[in-house]
Nucleic acid binder design. Structure first.
Lengths: 189, 189, 189, 189
DNA sequence: TGTTAATCGAGACGGTACGTCTTGTCTTTCG
DNA sequence: CGAAAGACAAGACGTACCGTCTCGATTAACA
């Protein structure tokens, strides 16, 4: 019932290989076969841990997310939101952006996987924005009653850009989007 | 130099097969191989017309788009926007939604293709919203100076939903989103 | 140095599982993996006892052989030979036939194993025929000087049939073969 | 309906690769994967031609068989049989021997394949012996009525040796076996 | 009225990845 | 130490697509 425990070095090798591949070649260059080859691990060892490459990427991204900074809390809605967006967009310009794109591609091919991504990754990010909005509302800075839609205004454009124009995610765009979202938030419909 | 002209029936058969496949099985079930087999056409005949499945889907969607209604123009920003979003979201609940998801999946795998999708499909939709905003601005209903960001507020959440939660695109959501966008539009940052 | 003694129940379970598998699915269905799974024993427990599936089968067959009848001795060459062949062929129509086929398949893949099969199984059977021939020669019924070739005439066709046409091994064939071998034996070349 | 014709160079490459592999490494070293790799051919190209490695080997051996000498016809039973057996045994000491062993191994794993081997290869060899026997009977040199059993006496020991002791197939053994078979043939049971 | 050239279907071709299966070894915990 | 459990590297299995190619057979427009 116990058996030989999984070798953590294998876990690391798999994650590292997946990360390397996506960094060097993008989503197209990632395959279960390639991950195994690159990591010097057997295919079985990979399939034992993950049902598909989507879950590998999800796990790699989760590792990234674990080392993320806390939600900004400056006492000002605009400053909080801008800080969050700048940081988030900056990440999208790097490896996490490629990982997110890969995640999106996988999600499009399997609704069940989309569900997992939502619950394990997306929601955490939404929570951060929700905190910011809640605190601002307590300070009377938010009039719009529907947090969920406001959060969609924040992340929708980001994914939209990841799909069709990743270069768009600059600091300037973070500022412009922040302004627009705040305009929506501070006014009741 | 002239040679045998292309058979229009083959064009139709290809588009129809692609449409059938995506309707029945989603993006995963679509392959150049499958399209050829389903349509009773040779693979070469498909590749002669399209460089990849992305372009097939793009073409099928373009055929849909050609039969689309004109941009609403009621004289009221909210009504215009709501009508547009309801109509658009309704489409996403049907076959065009699946086609859009497929398009997104392809775009994620080839930046060059993402570019094509942008210029040939996305921009047309953005133009519609831009018209609505421009007319409203002329009537003094829009204070926000940056149309492009406002348009992102409209379509970003839609693609976001197509990625992770297609069921979200209801009439109610169209209304909520309309309200939020208008809140942003009517207020200068 | 002594440690825990091996559990004889494990030995039995392994042999039984191997026997079951070969009975139900033939040689193709036998694997070390399968034997372990079927017997509810760890793979290690199997490998500790046998270097490969060939030896498992050899052991199972040896268990069968232990319960075999003695060499016939009726005082007549033809009767002795016929009795032996009928009994032997009858066995080949059953589970021992499948085991022999498996043994042959293993032998073909490892000459060293072929050697073991020869010395541990084949030779015992050859001895039986050799006894019959020796007794007959003492009675003046055998003129052919080379027992080994005569024995080959007996068993060669049997293995030949096991390879390509196991259904051939009927009582009628035992009789026909007996006649031919006796014809060869009673005449000096 | 016609399609691109199969490239004969591919056929040759496959057969050559299979031959090389079996020559260098024996039956164990042959795999569909290896044949494809070695021949520089895609796996599909192999599977398109053969359902399994057994059929590849069968085909290679058939190519050998096509270039075989005609059945000896010296007017004397002993000379004919000896010539045939010496030639046949000599072949078993070389590559065809390895091919035959491989064939046997495959036949043991699939009765359907055993059937094919019988009809496409074995029977041709039996025919040769049958011709020799028939001619000898016409000359009054054969008294035994059952050709099929006599043929089994010829080939049985050969396959028996291929299974468990390939080194046995010397010229001396060919002579000894010839003598024994003739002893059986010239005497009615 | 023939060429000529691009089409059509069919299907072979080299590749790559898929996900599963065995093999034989190794590593853990428990008895 | 034996036993069950199960991880591990290695590599074959047979299938599916990819995008390209080579056929023989059409189907026009041009000569």
């Amino acid at each position: 019932m116990t058996g030989r425990p999984r070798d953590p070095a294998v876990d690391d090798a798999i994650r590292q290989a997946a990360l390397d591949l996506i960094t060097e070649q993008g989503y197209r260059g990632v395959s279960m076969e390639g991950i195994a080859a690159r990591s010097g691990v057997s295919k079985q060892a990979v399939y034992r841990r993950y049902p598909g490459k989507g879950e590998v990427i999800l796990d790699v991204l989760a590792a990234y997310a674990r080392t993320r900074l806390p939600t900004p809390d400056t006492g000002d809605l605009r400053e909080d939101l801008l800080a969050l967006l700048e940081e988030t967009f900056a990440a999208q310009r790097g490896v996490p952006g490629a990982l997110n794109q890969a995640l999106a591609a996988e999600a499009l091919q399997a609704p069940a996987f989309a569900e997992r991504v939502s619950s394990e990754l997306i929601n955490a990010r939404r929570d951060a924005v929700r905190q910011i909005l809640t605190r601002a509302r307590d300070r009377g800075q938010v009039a719009h009653p529907d947090d969920e839609v406001l959060i969609d205004l924040v992340f929708g454009p980001m994914w939209y850009a990841l799909l069709f124009d990743a270069g768009k995610l600059t600091d300037a765009y973070a500022a412009a989007l922040t302004d627009a979202v705040i305009a929506a938030a501070t006014r009741a419909p």
